[in-house]
Amino acid sequence: MTETLDSLLASRESQRREVVNVDEPMIKLVIFRLGERCFAFPGEVIREVLPGDEPVYFVPGMPSTIEGVINVRGDIESVILLQRVLQLSAATEPASGPRASILLGQGQQMHSGLRVDRLLDVVDVPQSLVQPPPDSLPEHLRECVTGLLSYQQLAITLLDLDQVFAIWERGTS
């Protein structure tokens, strides 16, 4: 069968159109460690990651979940001890030093720094990797955990920042 150039080009074009966009929806995650466990916030709620050795100033008369305040280019931000809010352990001293980090979280109602033990990665992962939270989740974590995923052989717990802030507000009032 003799093909013409036009028919060949038309065939190519139809094949190209048949290519289905199989790009999976991706989600950006800020992954960090708190004690022995790994957590992540969606990237869109983390404005900035600050080094953990930023000076944090103690503010008297605050609940124990507050580490203090930091000066971020002339703006004062509170620093919340995330480990205490999530009741992960009875850590007495907040992590600090070059491996620790402060995440600047921007929720719908409030913003604050969040102390974490170590920033692990900021990555884009396919949304399909996120599994629903298991029923076995501890009671106090149920309302702020939105999913679980495995990343580089680590079990990551995905957190909702607004719910974390809500738990913090409730816990301190």
């Binding site: 503010v59 008369g61 605050m62 507050i66 305040v69 004062i76 507000e169 301190t172």
Partner: peptide
């Protein structure tokens, strides 16, 4: 005082 601290302060004169 940053908003979160103002709302949660234990010592009202702060």
């Amino acid at each position: 005082l940053p908003d979160p601290l103002y709302k949660q302060r234990r010592f009202l004169p702060l």
